[in-house]
């Protein structure tokens, strides 16, 4: 019996396959490098290399110095950091119980809860903003219901820093729930059962079994939330106060109304810098997780 050559089974085009793979990934990499990385570097260079008062372009940090010495700009930055941190916190506090419920519950009610949790994904932000004004705004639906129940009128969060916060949390619930739910899928039923057999209560189950496995997902969910919310525009623009404003509307106003490109790009670079810190922290944790596996 003659053995067929190994190439019949393994395939003779291994080298060719590698080239095709590289070619396929080359196109998106080139696009990202050309349309994302290059403009970012170009923008950073624009802020650092400007024409001085004598008309000669030189290296300068004057736009950054202005930003960090300007109380108004710093107030906007603090508001953005405050909103982002609180949003991330609220998202985790709200979405973790929902994800846990969806993981362990069965039946029709769970399906409805899931549908309701995913619903904000299909609502465009601008529709959400105007609906928010109608419901939570002055003389809105909430006011009417409270009035009908003879309850005291609550102050509307519309046009306060809490307005965009509520809107952004609502808008990011579906993504966070989905990510946490995906992470919970890695927690096997067997380990839960085993822990229950040994007599672990619900809280201990959560703390010792589920949360350690979920660490990565929580990190991913927090990253999506932080990176998305930091430069959010629509909801802070429509629902937020005039001052302080979040970085998104602030950058747009500096660029469009003041025609002040260098300062607008500086604000963008500073936002980018904050997001990168978080991004690096996230990447480092993922890499550590990969290594531990």
């Amino acid at each position: 019996m003659a053995l067929a050559s190994a190439s019949d089974i393994v395939g003779a085009r291994k080298q060719g396959g590698r080239l095709v793979g590289l070619l396929l990934v080359a196109i998106p990499v080139i696009l990202v490098a050309w349309m994302v990385i290059f403009p970012i570097l170009s923008a950073v260079v624009t802020t650092l290399w400007q024409t001085g008062s004598n008309g000669v372009p030189a290296f300068t940090l004057k736009t950054y110095q202005f930003f960090f010495s300007d109380g108004y700009s710093l107030a906007n930055l603090y508001l953005t950091l405050w909103t982002t941190a609180l949003c991330a916190l609220f998202l985790l506090v709200i979405c973790l119980p929902i994800a846990l419920y969806l993981r362990f519950a069965k039946g029709r009610l769970a399906a409805y809860v899931q549908g309701l949790a995913i619903f904000p994904l299909f609502v465009p932000s601008i529709v959400l903003a105007y609906a928010f004004i109608r419901v939570l705004g002055p003389n809105g639906m909430v006011d009417i219901l409270l009035n009908a129940a003879h309850l005291p009128k609550i102050r509307t969060p519309y046009l306060t820093p809490w307005g965009p916060l509520i809107g952004l949390v609502w808008d990011h619930i579906p993504l966070t729930v989905l990510i946490l739910l995906a992470g919970l899928g890695a927690v096997s039923d067997a380990s839960i059962e085993a822990a229950r057999d040994v007599g672990a209560g619900r809280l201990r189950l959560l703390w010792n079994i589920i949360l350690p496995r979920l660490g990565n997902s929580i990190l991913v969910a927090a990253s999506f939330a932080v990176l998305g919310i930091f430069s959010a525009f629509t909801l802070p623009y429509v629902l937020g106060p005039a001052a302080p404003e979040m970085m998104g509307p602030f950058m747009q106003r500096t660029f469009r109304d003041l025609y002040d490109a260098p300062n607008a790009i500086t604000q963008a670079v500073i936002s980018f810098f904050f997001c990168i810190i978080f991004g690096l922290f996230y990447v480092r944790s993922i890499v550590n997780n990969q290594r531990n596996r």
């Binding site: 705004g137 002055p138 046009l159 429509v238 629902l239 005039a242």
Partner: peptide, 22 residues
């Protein structure tokens, strides 16, 4: 002013508040 200075973010939003009676 309304809410001690809650400036709206556009022409349409002001009209919306007037129509809501706020």
């Amino acid at each position: 002013l309304m809410d001690q200075g809650a400036y709206t973010s556009g022409n349409t939003q002001s009209i919306q508040l007037l129509s809501q009676g706020a």
